[in-house]
């Protein structure tokens, strides 16, 4: 395989789980909710996806199970924060704690077993085109799903009534409520969508990225997804750019190391985070842009007055 092509393929696989989890969280935050439990939902998606695929032999069922696990975790969060109006930051952190523990328990008997790999689709003819063929037409289905999700989310959020409602709820829940929208229900739906995406992202890790189950295998990717949402100033397009930028810097760090230049590996490992901060500073400098897109009600609980 050609070196450059290999690097690009690696960047795509490294970026996809981040993008999948982040796009869900973006919708959640657009509706005015901050769910810091992405890591917990993701790791549950990973273990349930793996366990199901291993038991049934079907990666498709595994993906489905991963999504359902994410939704299940998200439901706990939604019930806590929307129905019982508990604090979102603390609930999200508790969700991560629960997810990491529970996934370990579920996965105890699946450690050390080779998984069922999600086979990349390979579109005939097109995937044989030199260089770009493999990159554009030979990915696994979830890579395409992540791109489709970005496009669909952009469309729904900004071109449809549903999107208008979600943004209205996130920007000012009181006026959305007085306009007759059910703020709580909209947020429930968005939180569950976020859970589904995080679960899918987890399933991607345990089915496609490294087909196996290991405790804590998400290794902090949920947190990076959270950061990317803020970095993207809540715009799906920018989120995709951000995820791929992060993936690129991440992989290039490894690439440069293999060249043996003697740059401290800690410095290269910290580059993706530094770059994210710098990029954020540049974007944030443009004040009108950020202010327009920031959901004003983020993190605030809503209880309808009656």
């Amino acid at each position: 395989m050609d070196g450059t092509q290999a690097i690009i393929l690696t960047i795509i696989t490294a970026s996809t789980p981040l993008l999948l989890a982040a796009i869900g969280e973006l919708v959640v935050e657009r509706s005015g909710v901050l769910n810091l439990g992405v890591e917990g939902m993701m790791v549950m998606g990973a273990v349930c996806g793996f366990a199901t695929a291993y038991t049934t032999g079907s990666p498709t069922l595994g993906i489905f199970a991963g999504i359902m696990a994410g939704i299940g975790m998200a439901f706990i969060f939604a019930f806590m924060t929307q129905t019982l109006v508990s604090n979102q930051v603390a609930t999200g952190l508790a969700l991560t704690l629960l997810g990491l523990g529970l996934s370990g328990l579920i996965g105890e008997s699946f450690v050390g077993l080779p998984g069922v790999k999600l086979v990349p689709v390979s579109i005939p003819l097109l995937s044989d085109i030199p260089f770009i063929g493999r990159i554009l037409f030979g990915q696994d289905i979830l890579v395409y799903a992540s791109i489709a999700l970005v496009i669909a989310t952009t469309y729904v959020l900004f071109k449809t009534r549903v999107g208008l409602i979600i943004r209205a709820v996130g920007d000012n829940h009181h006026s959305a409520h007085s306009l007759g929208y059910n703020v709580i229900m909209v947020r429930y739906a968005c939180i569950l969508f976020g859970g589904a995406c995080a679960g899918l992202s987890g399933a991607y890790l345990s089915l496609a990225y490294t087909p196996q189950w290991i405790e804590n295998m998400t290794a902090g990717r949920g947190w990076i997804a959270l950061a990317l949402v803020v970095f993207a100033t809540w715009l799906p397009k920018r989120l995709a750019i951000g995820a791929y930028l992060f993936g690129t810097v991440w992989i290039m760090g490894l690439y440069v190391q293999a060249q043996g230049l003697g740059i401290p590996s800690q410095f290269l490992s910290s580059l993706p985070y530094l770059v994210t901060i710098i990029a954020l500073v540049i974007i944030s400098g443009n004040k009108t842009l950020t202010r327009v897109n920031t959901p004003a009600c983020i993190g605030q609980s809503f209880v309808p007055d009656r």
Partner: peptide, 16 residues
């Protein structure tokens, strides 16, 4: 893991 799950549940109840 059991300890972690237990702790998570405790937090949920306190918050609720």
């Amino acid at each position: 893991k059991t300890a972690q799950v237990f702790q998570g549940i405790l937090l949920f109840f306190i918050l609720a």
